[in-house]
Design a protein around this nucleic acid. Structure first.
Length: 581
RNA sequence: GCCCCGUUAGCUCAGCCGGAUAGAGCGCUGGAUUCCUAAUCCAGAGGCCAUAGGUUCAAAUCCUGUACGGGGCACCA
């Protein structure tokens, strides 16, 4: 309906005012939904916009336009109001079209035809050194909902997890695992101060013991003494221990590392799956460093690319990238003085790889603490002759957990964090997903654990789900068949509440499109709350199982539309719409 | 110092690609259930949209400054 009005207005103004001085194609007619019923259903501000270029009174323009506008069965009245708005009044029966559409499209209502565009969303990508904790939860939900949303908007989506399985932290993880393992034989062995303290490594150590018995321990027993001499958090000492381990265990050290890595990734994958998060691609950082006999690794190639464009230099034994040439605060190190590549070096190679895989959009979902990181990555893309604007980064602000009105404090040090798994066990996957996504991503979020568990209208998720369950219940009792509802008389749905609900249902596809384009899935939550609220009002004001079968069927038809849209919206959030509660 | 983000009802927050009288939930006050799920609904009170300018026919919305609050600025990952 909007599109039709827009088109005919566009035709009218180009007919009336188009001339060599004024190209009316430049003025896009905007049609808005009106809040106030007095103003009709839809309105256009085009006369106000054209007032200046035409040097004419907007009301006069509006009147000229509506003279040319022809009414039909759906658009029953048009008028000029206020400073020059053109208001459109729709017939009550015209609102019912949306119900037929929903009824025929069902799950696909709101879905856009494939647009043949590919998008890569990289998210979570937490270090594989321990299980996911609640700090990762928000990004995880956001990424998975955005993925569903973009699929709904017609994109082909890949969801990727970048595994940081390279470098020093992997070594520390291996050492930590060995210590946990050694502790199974000698409880006197102490964990490194800088080691990974979490208990999950004990479980993994037990598994290791099952496979290797005491083999690794006996052969390297002497290291325990060295470790126990660790008294303070000294990075140099930690590196020293790593070196000893590497030389003494040699091949076994790699085994240890691979074993720990595999176990932890397994843990992460299980947690994500329980949380409704499904990455279809897992990208290993260390693969960027593999080189075939003939070619250099992707990291070396990436640096070579920067170098050949003249943006690399050497200083203090390190290799630097001149990111300051592209607006970054300062230059960044690619390869440290000790010969190690930095994380940034990996990231340059990784992003080049993403670009070269042929996506139309590349989206990163990062914790907001990484925002200072954008300039250098974009600089690296630019320096490699790639379009820096292709990379979109969404920042996720941290979430606080609130219990009994108070913030729960955590320290990631020493492993005292609440895991994602514990959160899910406490409040359920669905509540956790909803509460994480319910707020704009770049805003602080207070996650109220008590509210998430509450079963009342104060809990917005229950409120929405309850609306769905209530409708299911009515439909069950009515025993009405879909085919009967399809033939109901839509003109009977003419009360204010009924019209309002039909309008809301009509807005759903626009909402999905908007949420997808702006990467703002929280809009779905707000929409669903509004829709549920309108339904609950309606439910309390009308009776549905009435004698008059035509009336009953038309009302039930409306309810089934609401039900379908709640279902579709929740499914994008990865949340179930219950038949009963 | 530099860079992000915020400031809207007592509280928690929507709205922000400019549109007509600024919204929701909680809390507060008062009401609704012989009936399809009261896990619900209805009504009322409650606002200089931080502040000062600017752009515009029109600003909570766009631009600039200021104040206050949160976060970030590694040869870490």
């Amino acid at each position: 309906m909007k599109e039709e009005i827009q088109k005919s207005l566009q035709d009218i103004i180009s007919g009336l005012y188009d001339n060599p001085e004024l190209n009316t194609d430049l003025y896009v007619v905007h049609i808005q939904d009106n809040k106030d019923k007095e103003h009709g259903d839809l309105a256009s501000n085009i006369a106000l916009v054209l007032s200046k270029p035409l040097k004419k009174n907007p009301k006069e323009i509006a009147n000229e336009i509506i003279e040319q506008f022809s009414l039909d069965a759906n658009i029953i009245k048009v008028e000029v109001a206020g400073p020059g708005f053109i208001n459109f009044f729709l017939s009550k029966s015209s609102h019912g079209e949306v119900l037929k559409k929903i009824s025929s499209e069902k799950k696909n209502y709101g879905k856009v035809q494939p647009i043949n565009k590919k998008v890569l969303i990289e998210y979570v990508s937490s270090n594989p050194t321990g299980p996911l904790h609640i700090g990762h939860g928000r990004g995880a939900v956001f990424g998975s909902v955005l993925s569903k949303l973009l699929k709904e908007a017609g994109f082909e989506v890949d969801e990727e997890y970048y595994v940081n399985d390279f470098g020093r932290q992997m070594n520390i993880l291996s050492v930590s695992l060995w210590i946990r393992y050694a502790q199974l034989f000698d409880s006197q062995v102490k964990m490194l101060k800088n080691g990974y303290q979490g208990e999950y490594l004990i479980d993994i150590a037990k598994k290791l013991k099952k496979i290797k018995s005491d083999e690794f321990y006996i052969a390297n027993k002497n290291i325990s003494k060295l470790i126990n001499s660790d008294q303070e958090e000294d990075e140099v000492f930690t590196d020293h221990v790593i070196e000893i381990f590497k030389s003494q265990l040699s091949k076994d050290f790699n085994f240890l590392r691979d074993f720990a890595l595999e176990e932890i990734i397994d843990l992460i994958k299980r947690d994500l799956l329980d949380f409704g998060v499904n990455h279809n691609k897992w990208f290993s950082e260390s693969s960027l460093y593999q080189n075939d006999k003939e070619t250099e690794s992707r990291v070396e190639k990436a640096i070579q690319g920067l170098k050949s464009n003249g943006f690399v230099y050497e200083k203090d034994n390190a290799i630097w990238f001149k990111s300051s040439d592209f607006g970054d605060d300062k230059d960044r190190v690619l390869k440290r003085g000790n010969g190690d590549y930095t994380y940034f070096a990996s990231d340059v190679a990784y992003h080049l790889d993403k670009y070269d895989r042929g996506y139309d959009r590349v989206i990163n979902i990062w914790g907001s603490d990484h925002h200072g990181y954008i300039p250098r990555v974009k600089a690296a893309m630019e320096a490699n002759n790639r379009d820096k604007d292709k990379l979109e980064v969404v920042f996720i602000q941290f979430a606080n957990l609130i219990r009994e009105g108070k913030k729960i404090t955590m320290s990631t040090r020493s492993g005292e964090f609440i895991t994602l798994k514990e959160l899910i066990e406490e409040v359920s996957t669905e509540a956790a997903r909803f509460f994480y996504i319910n707020r704009k991503a770049d805003q602080h979020l207070d996650f109220d654990l008590d509210l998430a568990k509450e079963q009342s209208k104060d809990n917005p998720l229950y409120y929405i789900q309850y609306a769905h369950a209530r409708i299911c219940s009515v439909l069950r009792k009515s025993k009405a068949k879909d085919s009967e509802l399809d033939n109901s008389d839509l003109a009977l749905l003419d009360s204010d509440r009924e019209v309002e609900i039909q309008k809301m249902l009509q807005q759903y596809p626009t909402l999905i499109e908007k949420a997808a384009l702006s990467s703002e899935p929280h809009l779905i939550c707000y929409y669903l709350k509004d829709l549920a609220s309108s339904f609950h009002s309606y439910y309390n004001s009308e009776k549905f199982l009435v004698e008059d079968e035509m009336l009953m069927n038309s009302r039930l038809f409306l309810l089934s539309g609401v039900k379908q849209v709640i279902h579709n919206g929740l499914s994008i959030l990865g949340i179930n719409a219950p038949q009963e509660m």
